[in-house]
């Protein structure tokens, strides 16, 4: 289990407690600036909380060995600043780093599972934004493929600015990881996608946790209207809430 206990980071995340269980895909939702990305980075261990702590399997994240943690927890960021022209499979193979040996059979299998085998040998900077994101997704999947304990996959707006096909592939892959028993947490601003793919949702606003629970309960029209500061009728107009 991945647990946040009274987590605070400056004024961007305030006193958030939540737990994330294996086998479920949890969406972090909320308006821009609600603290979704910050919470995700805290859960990943990329930021240190000013108060509170994150626990993975009952152990504070800060006391985990870096290598051991890297074999179990992978993070897919929103944007990639990679400006060097690696071949696609070399980037996927970076996921082998924590295990210490480059396993190109594994790299190939994971790339095949995302249907990006044709990118093998292609230069990274010549790929489209969607293809680049899939390459990085393959990298993080390779990273935790052979984890001993519970696997944790954290995704920060993985589909931002991607077209429908890539949205489907990426969210479907995340879903599948959850079905295979991983803890999957995803910051997502698109509520209809959250509704379709997530099991659970955590709604944030101005750094505070508003509500956490089953996705259909969290995303009701009145609450969405209040948090996003839109009219009730507009929230219904988006047509995703029962």
């Amino acid at each position: 289990m991945l647990e946040a206990r009274t987590l605070t980071y400056k004024d961007r995340v305030r006193d958030v407690s939540a737990s994330f269980i294996p086998g479920a895909l949890t969406a972090l939702v909320g308006p821009n600036g609600a603290g979704k990305t910050t919470l995700l980075r805290l859960l990943a261990g990329g930021l240190c909380a000013t108060e509170g702590n994150v626990f993975l399997e009952g152990q504070p994240l800060s006391t985990w060995d870096e290598q051991a943690l890297a074999r179990q927890r992978a993070v897919l960021p929103q944007a990639h600043g990679l400006g060097f022209n690696f071949e696609a499979q070399a980037i996927v193979a970076l996921g082998c780093m924590p295990s210490g040996r480059e396993d190109f059979a594994l790299v190939k299998a994971v790339m095949a599972s995302l249907a990006i085998e044709p990118l093998w040998g292609r230069r990274y900077l010549s790929l489209s934004g969607g293809e680049q994101q899939l390459v990085h997704l393959a990298r993080v999947l390779v990273q935790i493929k052979e984890a001993q304990g519970v696997r944790v996959l954290l995704l920060d707006e993985p589909t931002a600015s991607l077209d429908l096909r890539y949205q489907e592939i990426i969210l479907e892959a995340a879903r599948q990881q959850a079905e295979e028993g991983a803890i999957v947490v995803m910051a997502l601003h698109d509520l209809s996608l959250a509704h379709r793919f997530a099991d659970k949702a955590v709604m944030l606003n101005e750094g505070c946790l508003i509500v956490a629970g089953e996705v259909s309960e969290v995303l009701n029209a009145e609450r969405v209207a209040a948090v996003y500061q839109i009219k009730n009728s507009e929230a219904k107009h988006f047509g995703v809430f029962c």
């Binding site: 290598q67 960021p77 996921g95």
Partner: peptide
């Protein structure tokens, strides 16, 4: 940050 997530 990404390098850190890879255990580096």
């Amino acid at each position: 940050e990404q390098a850190g997530y890879l255990g580096v």
